[in-house]
Design a protein around this nucleic acid. Sequence first.
DNA 1: TCAACGCGTGGGCATATGCTCAAAACGCGA
DNA 2: TCGCGTTTTGAGCATATGCCCACGCGTTGA
Lengths: 316, 316
Amino acid sequence: MAAENDKSKLDDAARAGWLYFIAGHTQDEIAKMLQVSRASAQRLVSLCLAERLITFRLEHPIAACMELAARLKERFKLVHCEVVPADPVAPQANAGIAERCANLLDATLRSETPVIVALGTGRAVRAAVERVTPIDRPNHQIVSLVGNISADGSASFYDTVGRLADRTGARHYPMPLPFLMSSEDERNRMVRIEPIAKVKAVAAKADLRLVGIGQMDQKAQVHIDGFVTRDELFEMMRLGAIGEITGWAYDAKGRLLKAGTNKRLTSIPPEVPAKTTTIGAAVGAAKVAAIAAALNGRLINGLITDEATARAILER
Amino acid sequence: MAAENDKSKLDDAARAGWLYFIAGHTQDEIAKMLQVSRASAQRLVSLCLAERLITFRLEHPIAACMELAARLKERFKLVHCEVVPADPVAPQANAGIAERCANLLDATLRSETPVIVALGTGRAVRAAVERVTPIDRPNHQIVSLVGNISADGSASFYDTVGRLADRTGARHYPMPLPFLMSSEDERNRMVRIEPIAKVKAVAAKADLRLVGIGQMDQKAQVHIDGFVTRDELFEMMRLGAIGEITGWAYDAKGRLLKAGTNKRLTSIPPEVPAKTTTIGAAVGAAKVAAIAAALNGRLINGLITDEATARAILER
DNA sequence: TCAACGCGTGGGCATATGCTCAAAACGCGA
DNA sequence: TCGCGTTTTGAGCATATGCCCACGCGTTGA
């Protein structure tokens, strides 16, 4: 009898679900059709959903991305995750990533109440600031997490802070230091001087950190850009470095290394675990291990990537 | 630019649809996530539906029935249609049909305002009245569309009117006539006498007619039940009869025949086209042609059948 | 360069929905 | 048959949704 009852109820639930979702009737109409109260009709529709009698299928490439983003968010307890479709035209182009990052910055900067945005390294970050919609927000603050003077003394290509400040009228705090100091002592001395301490203080209060993620292999961006020498890179790799965020190298478990160049870095290290909203932006098969490690080590609590990379991270 | 715009809009629509239907967010939440107004979020969800980006799939046998019912309703412009799942245990049993008919009668009779229900022949109709929930409605009227005296003078097995009246306390009007008179003249004389005229008058005002549909072949129920002889049956078949409703034989196009037993029938003929809600109840491969003809000829404007029969009707 | 047109946007309102709570119905056991 | 515990039901309310309308921005044509 119970089974019979259940079955008939599920039948009705299916009927209600069909009428609601497929035929597009209101619950009132369904209630009349099935000779029950509207409340019961609503219950039947819920039941139909709860019992998974009805399923939704989204016929659109975006669907896969949403799915991947949801899984990443769940798996790594992220506060924010976006997965952009792999562009079939130019799979290499991270235009989509930059677009989303720019959108995120836009959304953050649109706020009337003062916010502090901290920026790390990375082409995606750089490209993102170029796409930020100009907006007048003089009370916001933009702070750099990483020195913008390269080894040869010139200003780095990555003057993202300045560019973003240009577009918003916000106060900005570049980090007027070389990426690496010559020794740990020197680093320790430099980071205590007034302007640098100020940058650190502002960065510590950041509402949003947007950082790139670099892989530590022979094509590591920190090396290509001339911030670290080949020997330094290899040493870090020997020490287990698999990725870096604002220059800070970490191993496959996402633990920051306490040796090598990390001892001479002027950059502001990631929080561990990330408490501030810290969004990593990175794409590419080469970066999968680095991204996964950053996620596992809680060096970041948000991620913007593309479909292929997201899939690869989840499949590890 | 326009295409780009459209594409991006569809992307957003897909995103909104995903968040709404799959992730179960409210449109307000989606609006915040996508950085648009709630109104726009609603538009995106609508768009997602309109563009068929999302599809619903109901994983339940009922789904097929709802689909078939909707198609029958559309195709034959029915005011009511129900398709019952084919019972895998006892495919022959029309318990489902009877159940639905009973439900229909229940719903009609539940009304506080007086209603008139007219009943035809058929096992489904008979079985339906047996399942009607007893309810006290003395102001309702139950009227028979068909004589309940068989050829041998005994009261017919199909005293459905009496049974239904028992269960409702309604006034009832059986048709105190043999099914067939011996001649057209006699029929014409009989249907004018006072009690019969009264029955006809009540039937003409019926709010609901529930009738069985019989096929006119060697296994015709009208013959098996002894209402018409083998010769009469064969004559009607020669005249093109393919089905009958309350005894009135009609051809493959659903046109009532003007010859043979139809000239001697005492039953109240179907309206052509049906204006009163006239529900046919019938199941079985043998009846498919008869049902389809009745639908095409507008002898009925409602149908209660099972899955297999519905499918067969639509596939003709 | 200005004006007119039109599409897209957001505010606001009527309606639909989801949910809570008390009451009723049901089943079960004494 | 009665009483109790459990489930189901329907009223009512807070919230979410759908839709209309006026506004604004961008585009086009003179």
